[in-house]
Amino acid sequence: MRSVAFDQTSVTLTTRGQSIRLSPCVTTEAYDQILTLYRTLLVFATVAGVILAVGLVEFVYFEPPGQTSGARARIVGVFEYDPASGQLVGSDRASFTRNQAFAAKVSWLGLPGDITVDARWYDTFGNVVGRVGPSTPSKLGDNSIVPVVVPPGLHHNLPGHYTFVVERLQNGVPVEVLARRIVLVER
């Protein structure tokens, strides 16, 4: 006598004295297309991971860890500035109006002579709007006043926070801030 039993995934043949279970060599379950979407998403996520890793590498390149030389520059102050005479006017201030020219005064004394430094002004949009250097502190000795330059096409400084930094450079890349001041240009 022979009987055949079916279930969802296999067929069982039963003859006298033996029972043989036959499993299909190819799965009968239909492939769910959602898995294609899922795998595509995982591929995109891998690319995203690479992008973020590249971002991290970029961050570490421009902001290398362990770059603390111990050197400290001294910013004497930020003053109103007379572009005609090149002289500073008045006392140290934290804010200016748009039509006031201003400049920072840096003391290069006390910095090691073998390092490369520069000093820069960044406006509120991150553009460099004034710079001295790069060079060694001894060569920059006379260039202690760093004025903000009004960008071409504009009549006055743009309002917002301006950041002044004295930086140490290594292979042409700023790696450490030796001093920093932030001032406000009012609207």
Binding site: E58, E63, G126, H161, V165, E167
Partner: peptide, 14 residues
Amino acid sequence: TQRLLVPGPGLDAA
């Protein structure tokens, strides 16, 4: 970050 990092691409990335 403006008080801690070097202005430039590193700060932009942060």
